[in-house]
């Protein structure tokens, strides 16, 4: 018995060594990054794999921050070639990249994504402003010239025009790019328009940051995890709740949920595309120039992603819920991809 075990173990060990040795070269593109860009990047990758002779790229959904961290770890086949991001790369990240030898990065903007506040069709439709959303969700709000723990429990307490319903909002956790964008586009913007907080911004920037960045923790704002489908299901089961997630999930579930109007604009494809709907952000990916020519197909993949067929006004990505860039911008990034224009912030 033991001798046969020994043989098996020896064979396994040999196999491991042999395979580790041959694993050096890599012939398919590796992509990491944002879970928001993931559904679009995967469609491009699949098409790319089918129409070209290159292998289908492997895409991991690691979140924008995690992706950039992996991306900036260095140059070499063990590091990813491209990272997707639902926010622009930060200066600190470019510096991290540079210290690890990733000097040249090409930035490609692919389109927009709307963030929607939606609820079940069985419930009333909400017509909100960003200020109202802030007052409903911030941990501390100004009342009578003082910052106090958020006292609102019903929407109607914030504004008479809002439904007389308890505040209950399901949203993404802090690790999510959607949360970052929501805080920036809604909470920060609203805070800047509230006189008291505007003064605070001028006197104490850090406190201001803390006020608009903290969501309430008394059970009115519920972190519901990264899975947007789950939020949609929860909204269906609980008509009293609102949920925060990406536009593509609203697009796919239009029979069950409705998007709340924000500052008079409904979250529709057209309104997000022309910028009227205020809560939308840009989606990017970043290419490691040093890998072009080493890993086959990178430039062809970028070309596919930025082509009219994919990211154009009627491209296949729009079917998946991507809001396309204006034609001129798309052309600009198509050229950037072709020339590998180095990103300088």
């Amino acid at each position: 018995m033991t001798s046969s075990f020994g043989k098996v173990a020896a064979i396994a060990a040999l196999g491991v060594i042999a395979m580790a040795a041959q694993a050096e070269a890599r012939d398919q593109i590796r992509i990491v990054g944002s879970s928001t860009v993931f559904p679009f990047a995967t469609v491009v990758a699949e098409n790319f794999g089918k129409v070209t002779s290159y292998k289908t790229p492997v895409i991991e959904s690691t979140g924008s921050g995690g992706g950039l961290k992996l991306f900036c770890q260095g140059v070499g086949t063990e590091h990813p070639d491209i990272t997707n991001s639902s926010r622009r790369i930060k200066k600190s990240e470019i510096e991290l990249c540079a210290t690890n030898g990733v000097a040249e990065i090409t930035e490609i903007k692919v389109g927009f994504d709307g963030i929607v506040l939606a609820n079940s069709k069985k419930a009333k439709h909400y017509d909100l402003t960003r200020e109202q959303i802030f007052l409903a969700l911030a941990k501390e709000v100004p009342v009578d010239g003082k910052l106090v723990a958020n006292p609102y429990t019903k929407w109607s307490q914030i504004d008479k025009s809002l439904p007389d319903e308890p505040i209950e909002v399901l949203g993404p956790p802090p690790t999510s790019g959607t949360r970052d964008a929501f805080v920036e586009l809604v909470m920060e913007h609203a805070a800047e328009n509230i006189a008291f907080l505007k003064d605070l911004k001028n006197s104490d920037k850090n406190k201001f940051k803390q006020v608009y960045g903290s969501m309430r923790e008394d059970g009115k704002f519920i972190e519901a995890g990264e899975n947007d489908n789950l939020i949609v299901q929860k909204l269906e089961a609980n008509p009293a709740a609102l949920g925060i997630f990406g536009f593509s999930f609203l697009d796919q579930n239009a029979d069950k949920i409705q998007g709340s109007t924000v500052e008079g604009n409904n979250p529709t494809f057209e309104k997000i595309a022309d910028g009227a709907y205020p809560v939308s952000r840009s989606l990017y990916f970043y290419v490691k120039n040093a890998h072009v020519g080493v890993i086959p197909g990178i430039q062809e993949y970028v070309a596919e992603f930025t082509s009219t067929k994919a990211a154009g006004q009627e491209g296949y990505l729009t079917d998946k819920g991507l809001i396309p860039l204006p034609e001129a911008d798309r052309k600009k990034y198509e050229a950037a991809g072709a020339n590998l224009t180095k990103l300088v912030l």
């Binding site: 395979m19 580790a20 398919q28 993931f38 289908t56 492997v58 895409i59 991991e60 959904s61």
Partner: peptide, 11 residues
């Protein structure tokens, strides 16, 4: 990860 190609071996 999103992987379309069928894996052919252990690596």
């Amino acid at each position: 990860a999103f992987i379309v190609d069928i894996p052919q071996g252990f690596t």
